[in-house]
């Protein structure tokens, strides 16, 4: 494992922990898109189908379990917790899951490395992860005023993506047979979706003002 990959995993982990801690301690999920969180839970559930069949490393298994448990706990908090669910911006979070899930599923049926259930689900999870942030970005755009934690959450997710791209470049030059177009292209698309948000995030940080997206 290289340093970019480890740093990428750690920022990914931190993004989820920041979100869970926010929800758990202030008992509020204001500004967080349930649609995005449900899509992430689906991403992890379909990608980690190999968790009990292919052992890669203890690190790999533990991280998979953490991502599954944390993503499903966040969804549980937002839907079921009797205090937290009241702070959910239901009327603003109107993005339709199916608009993202169906095209990703169709695409995965046609573009995949091998036409097996596990492989198609794995490819589907990559495509879906690339666009799963969209409901959250739409919600940010609508509410405009973003609290620090929500801003940090999206920032950490973006950092995770950027570090994964550096990891792929590093692996491409250091490992033989390391060519994965599906992963790279969907990963690149995902990272580009954050570019606009990053621009405003850095500006607000540089000028030391509260993050606000343009109307």
């Amino acid at each position: 494992m290289n340093i970019f990959r480890l740093a990428g995993d750690m920022t990914h982990l931190m993004s989820v922990i920041v979100l869970l801690l926010k929800i758990h301690t202030i008992k509020s999920c204001a500004g967080i898109s349930l649609k995005t969180q449900e899509l992430y839970a689906l991403v992890f559930a379909t990608r980690y189908l190999d968790i009990f069949t292919d052992f890669i490393s203890l690190y790999n298994t533990i991280m998979k379990l953490i991502f599954l448990a944390s993503s499903f706990s966040i969804v549980w908090y937002m839907r079921q917790h009797k205090i937290v669910r009241r702070s959910y911006d239901k009327d603003q979070d109107t993005f339709r899951h199916l608009f993202l899930i169906l095209p990703c599923l169709l695409l995965a049926l046609f573009i995949n490395e091998k036409f097996t259930f596990k492989e198609v689900m794995w490819t589907f999870s990559l495509f879906l992860e690339a666009v799963a942030i969209l409901p959250q970005l739409v919600l940010l755009q609508r509410t405009r005023n973003i609290d620090n934690l929500t801003g940090q959450y999206v920032f950490l997710l973006g950092a995770y993506r950027a570090l994964y791209i550096l990891n792929w470049i590093y692996r491409y030059f250091t490992e033989p047979h390391y060519v994965h177009w599906i992963t790279w292209i969907s990963g690149l698309v995902q990272t580009l979706l954050y570019a606009d948000f990053f621009y405003y995030y850095f500006n607000s940080w540089k000028n030391n003002v509260k993050l606000q997206l343009p109307a």
Partner: peptide, 10 residues
Amino acid sequence: AEQFSVKDEL
């Protein structure tokens, strides 16, 4: 080489 492929990523 396959077991050191992209599938070891999260």
